[in-house]
Amino acid sequence: MGKRKLLEIKDLTVKFFTEDGTVNAVERVSFDIEKEETLGVVGESGCGKSVTALSVMRLLPSPPAKITSGKILFEGEDLLSKSEAEMRRIRGNLISMVFQEPMTSLNPVFTIGHQISEAIVLHQKLSKKEARERAIEMLRLVGIPNPEKRYWEYPHQLSGGMRQRVMIAMALSCSPKLLIADEPTTALDVTIQAQILDLIERLKEKVGMSVLMITHDLGVIAEMAKRVVVMYAGQVVEESPCEDIFENPLHPYTAGLLKSIPKLEGKKSRLHVIEGNVPNPLNFPSGCRFHPRCFEAKKICGEKMPSLVEVEGNRKVRCFMRGSFPEEVLAIERAGRN
């Protein structure tokens, strides 16, 4: 069982210590990614999904951010106990990241070729010339026409989609085992989005890597992921295989997200919205963090925090109405842990 796991996040808690108070950005988040698997993480802005990803890279700005507890096991080794020098050998080499903003994620004053070669020279110990050949090969692989010429161009000479391809080329240039894609298509046109997702899917097969796909777009999840983790207000609220979550969402929040996707077929009605706002992370509501917006909320939901419990064998949910009531919940959780 343990052998197939590439990344295991266990009880990760991240806090931001700001002047206004302590922000509980991520609270006891746990999930795994298997080798060559694509895991989707969905949630609204500010739910903690990017913070989780940056924690894996150990790239959170500290201060104000601090990982206060938890483990991040990569191939069985805890990334949180590694030195900065050890992390540098992992970043861009074993674990790479593609960011949301292709327009600003490339350095405007260096050629894209230089920026790709830089990582190759650093991790693969190749000469500059060999690195250039490898970079050109990567540019060709991500579908950039005329890569020999593009190598010498600057980011401003490329469109957003092309820049994201360059980011992917850069991320994959050292054949990482894990690619973290943080909203890689959010800033792109719809037609380009599909191309970029296709590209990631195709290269995933080729390189044999796992992908952590972070998005707020359930469409992207449906396209890419086998399993989905749904995050809300810094916590995991549901984890399910992809097909189950679309057919039968367990958590009321997941159900709300699914209903708020516009449909092309069938009867036209007003689009569903989840009432209320994302809670302020400086001051989360008591009990279940979703209860003020939940149409199924009972009295207990405002009093006690539900745990993430296993249901139906391969699914997990954090909801009293789907799991069971507190005493039983705790018992099940204890049983599930040991």
């Binding site: 790239l59 540098r88 861009g92 960011f99 600003t104 490339l106 850069m170």
Partner: peptide, 10 residues
């Protein structure tokens, strides 16, 4: 953002 990219490269 590009500084974060540079750090993410290792």
């Amino acid at each position: 953002d590009f500084i974060r990219t540079a750090r993410a490269k290792g």
